[in-house]
Design a protein around this nucleic acid. Structure first.
Lengths: 99, 99
DNA sequence: TAAAAGCACTTTGAGATTAAAAGTAAACAG
DNA sequence: CTGTTTACTTTTAATCTCAAAGTGCTTTTA
Protein backbone atom coordinates (compact mmCIF):
# COMPACT_ATOMS: atom_id res chain seq x y z
CA UNK A 1 0.00 0.00 0.00
CA UNK A 2 1.47 3.25 -0.98
CA UNK A 3 1.36 6.26 1.16
CA UNK A 4 -1.63 8.54 0.50
CA UNK A 5 0.52 11.54 1.28
CA UNK A 6 2.34 11.12 -1.98
CA UNK A 7 -0.95 11.37 -3.80
CA UNK A 8 -1.66 14.78 -2.41
CA UNK A 9 -1.35 17.48 -5.00
CA UNK A 10 1.10 20.21 -4.13
CA UNK A 11 -1.03 22.77 -5.91
CA UNK A 12 -3.86 22.15 -3.48
CA UNK A 13 -1.79 22.54 -0.33
CA UNK A 14 -2.80 26.15 0.03
CA UNK A 15 -5.98 26.90 1.91
CA UNK A 16 -6.89 29.61 -0.53
CA UNK A 17 -6.57 27.26 -3.49
CA UNK A 18 -8.45 24.56 -1.66
CA UNK A 19 -11.23 27.05 -1.12
CA UNK A 20 -11.30 28.15 -4.72
CA UNK A 21 -11.40 24.59 -5.94
CA UNK A 22 -14.17 23.54 -3.65
CA UNK A 23 -16.17 26.57 -4.76
CA UNK A 24 -15.80 25.77 -8.44
CA UNK A 25 -16.52 22.12 -7.77
CA UNK A 26 -20.00 22.82 -6.52
CA UNK A 27 -20.85 25.81 -8.70
CA UNK A 28 -20.75 25.95 -12.46
CA UNK A 29 -19.26 29.40 -12.39
CA UNK A 30 -17.97 31.65 -9.67
CA UNK A 31 -16.85 35.21 -10.02
CA UNK A 32 -14.01 37.11 -8.44
CA UNK A 33 -16.10 38.81 -5.80
CA UNK A 34 -17.90 35.70 -4.73
CA UNK A 35 -14.57 34.04 -4.21
CA UNK A 36 -13.17 37.02 -2.39
CA UNK A 37 -16.18 37.04 -0.11
CA UNK A 38 -15.98 33.32 0.49
CA UNK A 39 -12.30 33.03 1.15
CA UNK A 40 -11.57 36.38 2.73
CA UNK A 41 -8.35 37.31 1.10
CA UNK A 42 -7.05 40.46 -0.50
CA UNK A 43 -7.57 40.99 -4.20
CA UNK A 44 -3.96 40.54 -5.13
CA UNK A 45 -3.64 37.40 -3.15
CA UNK A 46 -6.76 35.87 -4.65
CA UNK A 47 -5.75 36.84 -8.17
CA UNK A 48 -2.38 35.20 -7.86
CA UNK A 49 -3.85 31.95 -6.59
CA UNK A 50 -6.37 31.99 -9.42
CA UNK A 51 -3.55 32.49 -11.84
CA UNK A 52 -1.62 29.53 -10.49
CA UNK A 53 -4.69 27.38 -10.82
CA UNK A 54 -5.26 28.62 -14.33
CA UNK A 55 -1.65 28.00 -15.29
CA UNK A 56 -1.99 24.47 -14.06
CA UNK A 57 -4.98 24.00 -16.31
CA UNK A 58 -7.37 23.48 -13.45
CA UNK A 59 -9.43 26.58 -13.99
CA UNK A 60 -11.08 28.18 -16.99
CA UNK A 61 -11.31 31.94 -16.92
CA UNK A 62 -14.06 33.72 -18.79
CA UNK A 63 -13.94 37.46 -19.05
CA UNK A 64 -17.31 38.99 -19.75
CA UNK A 65 -19.64 41.78 -18.79
CA UNK A 66 -22.68 42.31 -16.69
CA UNK A 67 -24.17 45.36 -18.36
CA UNK A 68 -21.15 47.59 -18.68
CA UNK A 69 -19.22 46.16 -15.81
CA UNK A 70 -16.50 43.63 -16.36
CA UNK A 71 -17.27 40.27 -14.85
CA UNK A 72 -14.74 37.50 -14.79
CA UNK A 73 -15.96 34.06 -13.94
CA UNK A 74 -14.01 30.98 -13.09
CA UNK A 75 -15.00 27.42 -13.82
CA UNK A 76 -13.30 24.13 -13.15
CA UNK A 77 -11.82 22.22 -16.07
CA UNK A 78 -12.08 18.49 -16.64
CA UNK A 79 -8.49 18.10 -15.63
CA UNK A 80 -9.03 20.27 -12.58
CA UNK A 81 -11.92 18.14 -11.54
CA UNK A 82 -9.91 15.00 -11.94
CA UNK A 83 -6.96 16.37 -10.05
CA UNK A 84 -9.06 17.76 -7.25
CA UNK A 85 -11.01 14.56 -6.83
CA UNK A 86 -7.78 12.62 -6.61
CA UNK A 87 -6.57 15.03 -3.96
CA UNK A 88 -9.73 14.67 -1.93
CA UNK A 89 -9.52 10.90 -2.20
CA UNK A 90 -5.98 10.96 -0.88
CA UNK A 91 -7.07 13.25 1.92
CA UNK A 92 -9.90 10.94 2.82
CA UNK A 93 -7.61 7.94 2.85
CA UNK A 94 -5.21 9.73 5.08
CA UNK A 95 -7.93 10.77 7.48
CA UNK A 96 -9.39 7.32 7.59
CA UNK A 97 -6.02 5.99 8.64
CA UNK A 98 -6.27 8.17 11.70
CA UNK A 99 -9.52 6.93 13.17
CA UNK B 1 -22.56 28.41 9.14
CA UNK B 2 -19.08 29.66 8.80
CA UNK B 3 -16.75 28.55 6.12
CA UNK B 4 -14.72 25.48 7.10
CA UNK B 5 -11.79 26.80 5.13
CA UNK B 6 -11.16 29.37 7.80
CA UNK B 7 -10.82 26.63 10.35
CA UNK B 8 -7.95 25.01 8.50
CA UNK B 9 -4.65 25.43 10.26
CA UNK B 10 -2.02 27.17 8.18
CA UNK B 11 0.71 25.09 9.76
CA UNK B 12 -0.84 21.93 8.36
CA UNK B 13 -1.17 23.15 4.80
CA UNK B 14 2.06 21.52 3.80
CA UNK B 15 1.96 17.93 2.65
CA UNK B 16 5.13 17.16 4.53
CA UNK B 17 3.74 18.48 7.78
CA UNK B 18 0.47 16.73 7.21
CA UNK B 19 2.43 13.53 6.78
CA UNK B 20 4.48 14.05 9.89
CA UNK B 21 1.40 14.80 11.94
CA UNK B 22 -0.52 11.81 10.76
CA UNK B 23 2.47 9.64 11.55
CA UNK B 24 2.78 10.91 15.10
CA UNK B 25 -0.97 10.70 15.56
CA UNK B 26 -1.01 6.95 15.10
CA UNK B 27 2.37 6.12 16.60
CA UNK B 28 3.58 7.01 20.06
CA UNK B 29 7.00 7.82 18.75
CA UNK B 30 8.50 8.11 15.31
CA UNK B 31 12.11 8.69 14.46
CA UNK B 32 13.76 10.76 11.79
CA UNK B 33 14.42 7.89 9.44
CA UNK B 34 10.97 6.46 9.67
CA UNK B 35 9.58 9.84 8.74
CA UNK B 36 12.05 10.29 5.95
CA UNK B 37 11.12 6.90 4.57
CA UNK B 38 7.44 7.59 4.89
CA UNK B 39 7.36 11.04 3.42
CA UNK B 40 10.20 10.85 0.90
CA UNK B 41 11.85 14.18 1.39
CA UNK B 42 15.42 15.28 1.76
CA UNK B 43 16.93 15.42 5.23
CA UNK B 44 17.14 19.17 5.35
CA UNK B 45 13.60 19.61 4.22
CA UNK B 46 12.27 17.15 6.74
CA UNK B 47 14.31 18.68 9.54
CA UNK B 48 12.99 22.15 8.84
CA UNK B 49 9.39 21.01 8.82
CA UNK B 50 9.96 19.16 12.08
CA UNK B 51 11.42 22.32 13.52
CA UNK B 52 8.40 24.38 12.51
CA UNK B 53 6.12 21.85 14.12
CA UNK B 54 8.25 21.84 17.24
CA UNK B 55 8.29 25.62 17.39
CA UNK B 56 4.52 25.63 17.18
CA UNK B 57 4.39 23.33 20.17
CA UNK B 58 2.85 20.49 18.23
CA UNK B 59 5.75 18.10 18.47
CA UNK B 60 7.94 16.90 21.27
CA UNK B 61 11.50 16.03 20.34
CA UNK B 62 13.44 13.47 22.32
CA UNK B 63 17.09 13.00 21.59
CA UNK B 64 18.32 9.64 22.71
CA UNK B 65 20.43 6.68 21.72
CA UNK B 66 19.98 3.22 20.38
CA UNK B 67 23.14 1.58 21.59
CA UNK B 68 25.74 4.15 20.64
CA UNK B 69 23.85 5.68 17.81
CA UNK B 70 21.91 8.87 18.23
CA UNK B 71 18.19 8.41 17.83
CA UNK B 72 15.84 11.34 17.81
CA UNK B 73 12.20 10.57 18.18
CA UNK B 74 9.23 12.78 17.67
CA UNK B 75 5.94 12.59 19.51
CA UNK B 76 2.79 14.61 19.28
CA UNK B 77 1.93 16.98 22.11
CA UNK B 78 -1.52 17.47 23.62
CA UNK B 79 -1.81 20.77 21.87
CA UNK B 80 -0.63 19.25 18.60
CA UNK B 81 -3.25 16.58 18.91
CA UNK B 82 -5.94 19.12 19.53
CA UNK B 83 -4.87 21.33 16.66
CA UNK B 84 -4.52 18.47 14.25
CA UNK B 85 -7.90 17.02 15.13
CA UNK B 86 -9.48 20.40 14.56
CA UNK B 87 -7.78 20.60 11.20
CA UNK B 88 -9.01 17.16 10.20
CA UNK B 89 -12.52 18.08 11.27
CA UNK B 90 -12.43 21.15 9.10
CA UNK B 91 -11.09 19.10 6.22
CA UNK B 92 -13.86 16.57 6.65
CA UNK B 93 -16.49 19.28 6.69
CA UNK B 94 -15.10 20.76 3.56
CA UNK B 95 -15.02 17.44 1.79
CA UNK B 96 -18.51 16.62 2.85
CA UNK B 97 -19.71 19.81 1.27
CA UNK B 98 -18.45 18.50 -2.02
CA UNK B 99 -20.37 15.25 -2.28
C1' DT C 1 -18.76 67.97 -18.00
C1' DA C 2 -14.59 67.74 -15.70
C1' DA C 3 -12.88 65.90 -11.63
C1' DA C 4 -13.20 62.60 -8.04
C1' DA C 5 -14.42 58.11 -6.47
C1' DG C 6 -15.35 53.23 -7.17
C1' DC C 7 -14.86 48.79 -9.14
C1' DA C 8 -12.54 44.68 -10.78
C1' DC C 9 -8.93 43.10 -11.33
C1' DT C 10 -3.32 43.07 -12.43
C1' DT C 11 1.33 44.08 -11.43
C1' DT C 12 5.05 44.62 -8.40
C1' DG C 13 8.18 43.88 -4.83
C1' DA C 14 9.27 42.61 -0.24
C1' DG C 15 9.10 39.12 3.18
C1' DA C 16 8.23 34.43 4.43
C1' DT C 17 8.63 29.69 3.34
C1' DT C 18 10.53 25.60 1.30
C1' DA C 19 13.91 22.85 -0.49
C1' DA C 20 18.33 21.17 -1.48
C1' DA C 21 23.26 21.42 -0.84
C1' DA C 22 26.81 21.55 2.18
C1' DG C 23 28.52 20.84 6.72
C1' DT C 24 29.35 18.38 11.25
C1' DA C 25 30.10 15.01 14.70
C1' DA C 26 30.00 10.39 16.05
C1' DA C 27 30.37 5.56 14.71
C1' DC C 28 31.72 1.81 11.91
C1' DA C 29 34.51 -0.62 8.26
C1' DG C 30 38.71 -2.02 6.46
C1' DC D 1 44.40 5.19 11.51
C1' DT D 2 41.79 6.63 7.17
C1' DG D 3 37.78 6.68 4.66
C1' DT D 4 32.79 6.10 4.64
C1' DT D 5 28.32 6.15 6.48
C1' DT D 6 24.72 7.84 9.47
C1' DA D 7 21.78 11.22 11.45
C1' DC D 8 20.97 15.26 11.62
C1' DT D 9 21.95 20.70 11.38
C1' DT D 10 23.18 24.81 9.04
C1' DT D 11 23.44 27.56 5.09
C1' DT D 12 22.05 29.22 0.87
C1' DA D 13 19.19 29.47 -3.06
C1' DA D 14 14.75 29.23 -5.09
C1' DT D 15 9.92 29.63 -4.73
C1' DC D 16 5.79 31.32 -2.97
C1' DT D 17 2.62 34.36 -0.61
C1' DC D 18 0.78 38.47 0.34
C1' DA D 19 -0.56 43.24 0.38
C1' DA D 20 0.33 47.75 -1.60
C1' DA D 21 0.15 50.21 -5.53
C1' DG D 22 -1.31 50.58 -10.27
C1' DT D 23 -4.46 50.30 -14.51
C1' DG D 24 -8.43 51.02 -17.21
C1' DC D 25 -12.79 51.42 -17.18
C1' DT D 26 -17.46 53.26 -15.18
C1' DT D 27 -20.15 55.93 -12.12
C1' DT D 28 -20.98 59.63 -9.22
C1' DT D 29 -20.82 64.35 -7.81
C1' DA D 30 -20.24 69.23 -7.90
Amino acid sequence: MKNPIEQLNKVFDSRVRLGIMSAVMVNDEVNFNELKELIQVTDGNLASHLKTLEENGYLLVKKGFIGRKTNTTYAITKSGEKAFKAHIDALEKMIKGLH
